[in-house]
Amino acid sequence: MGTALIQILVFPGLLFLAVAGLAGEFIDRRLYARFQNRMGPPWFQPLADFIKLLSKEELVPDGADRGLFRLMPVFALTAVVTAFFYIPLWGTSALHAFSGDAIVVLYLLTIPTFTYFLGGYTSKSVYALLGSARTLTQLYAYEVPLFLAVLGPCLLAGTWSLSELTLFFQARPWALAANAAGFVIALIALLGKLEKVPFDIPEAETEIVGGAFTEYSGRFLAWFRLSFDIEMITGASLLAAVFLPFGLGLGFAAGFGLYLVKILFLIALIALIRSLVARLRIDQMIGFCWKVLAPVAFLQVIVNLVLKGIFFS
């Protein structure tokens, strides 16, 4: 009981994830600034933002469902932290693993998007409503390619458990090369999930002021921002576990270092893409996801099935 509480609240639970998320946000913002040839924020910036938002007045708009409005940030945070426990990080087994946890992780990572939608929907603001409608529209575009991209390696390994998946690839590292296309697809879909440029259509500041979070202030906004940061870490951990599962048998210290390097690499990729491209329109985004990403993801699944038939049957 005591160790379970420490695991949930301190390491590798809430506290570790909060620190990692804030550090991840800093690295993302700093790299983005350096790519734009400017200094960027100091290292404590995400922490200062977080504390300031915690200490600010929180306003609930008239006509909003008070319970729903207040609960949604907590739901988002809970879902992303829970998903983290089922992902193998520096060993070949996750903290909690069972057959089928890959589906559970993907499902838990969908919940935050729905909380953004519900939170925006109940704010009774036109901008928030537009933002939440865009959030859901975008969800239907990137979710299918993401699921298909993760399905490929799972089919190859013949398991729905992330821990067994990493064991399989640990034994046959060359099989990872077959999933290179899947990695790119999953990374692009993750950009959509995190609402980063070029898929920041739901919160497009220059068009619809703040998207689904237009009416959020104070503590609730702080929880939402933290859940975004932790979602970045969780999503990057998922990609690292599914597509980059090498060097997992090194023990805690070296394994943990390698895990941090993988996460840093993925965050740097996200920052690079963010500074390279501009925002797409919602129809362009959906067209791209369904006409390019989904067919390539299907192709990836077929390739994996053929490989499985040839080598692992």
Partner: peptide
């Protein structure tokens, strides 16, 4: 703009008054 880089001081432009200080 990036030339003056106000993010050095933590300044961010927000679209909505709910987020702004």
């Amino acid at each position: 703009t990036p030339r003056y880089d106000l993010e050095r001081f933590g300044v961010l432009l927000k679209g909505t008054p709910r987020h702004a200080d």
